[in-house]
Design a binder for these strands. Sequence first.
DNA 1: TCAAATCATAGAGCTAACTCGAAGTCTAGT
DNA 2: ACTAGACTTCGAGTTAGCTCTATGATTTGA
Lengths: 136, 136
Amino acid sequence: MKTYSISEVAKKLNLTVYTLRYYDKEGLLPFVERNPNGTRLFKESDIDALKIIECLKSTGMPIKGIKTFIDWCSDGDDTLQQRYDMFMERKADVEAQMEELKKTMAVIEHKCLYYKTALEAGTEEIHKSNKISMTQ
Amino acid sequence: MKTYSISEVAKKLNLTVYTLRYYDKEGLLPFVERNPNGTRLFKESDIDALKIIECLKSTGMPIKGIKTFIDWCSDGDDTLQQRYDMFMERKADVEAQMEELKKTMAVIEHKCLYYKTALEAGTEEIHKSNKISMTQ
DNA sequence: TCAAATCATAGAGCTAACTCGAAGTCTAGT
DNA sequence: ACTAGACTTCGAGTTAGCTCTATGATTTGA
C-alpha cells in the first residue's frame, strides 16, 4: 500500500512538517503508523483524516476539541451519538459565522462606498455635512 | 455632550475594560479624550469608531493593521486612497472567507448525514462496505 | 566513503490578543 | 473621616498554535 512521508503530506495539504509533528504530539494523528526506525508512514486514509481535521479547524474548533473527536473515533460505535452531536454543533456554529460575515460585509461595503465618494470629491468633508467622520 | 466611562463602553460593546485599555495602548483609540485627572471620556462617535474597529477585527484583520487604518484616519484626506484600497481588500478577503465557509459547510453537512446513517444503523460499519472509516 | 537530505525527539522560542495584579488616585456616600 | 468602588498605569502572566533549534539516526547518490 502506498504511503507518504511527512514532507510529502505537508506539501499536499499546504502545511509545514512542524505543524504535522505538532498535531501528532497533540494526539491528533494516533492512526499514523511508523516504519521500524520510527519514520511516519502516512496512508491515503490518514491524509483524508487530516482533511477532516483541517475542515474542523476552519470552523474555528480548537485543537483540543478536535482531539476529543479523534479519541471518539478510536473508541468506536459507542461514541457515534457524540460525534453526530459534535458535527451538528459545528454546523450551527458555521451557520452563525456566515450570518456574522454577512453583517460584517454590509458594513465593509458601506465603507467602500463612503470612501469611493470621498475619493471622488477629494475630501472626506463631503460626508461631514451633518454627521461625523469615521462613523459613516 | 454625553460621554461614557470605560466600563459603560465595555458593557455596550460586549468587551472588557482590559480589552479597551489594551486597544488604547496599541494606539487604536487616539481620539478618546480624558478629563483633567486622566479618566477616559468616550463620546458617541468614539463608540461608532469602536464598532468599525470590531468590524475590521471580525474580518480577521490584526490589531496592527487596524492601527494603520486609524493612523490614516488621523492623517486626513491624503490617505483616502489607502483607506479605500484597504476596505476593498477587506471586501475581497471576506468574500474569500465566505467561499471557504461554504466549502467547509458542505463537508460538515456530509458528516452530519454520515453519522445520522451510522447512528440509525447502530454502527459505523454501514459505511465501510467499500470505503474507509473516518474519510466518508 | 562521504556529504547532503530527510527523518526523528525534546524542548525552547515566538506572536497575537488579551488578562490580570499591584499600587495608586479620585469621588460619592455614611 | 473613612470606606467602597471605579478609575489610572505599568508590567507581568496566560493561552493557542505554531515554529524552530539542537542533536542524532538513517538513507541515498557521486
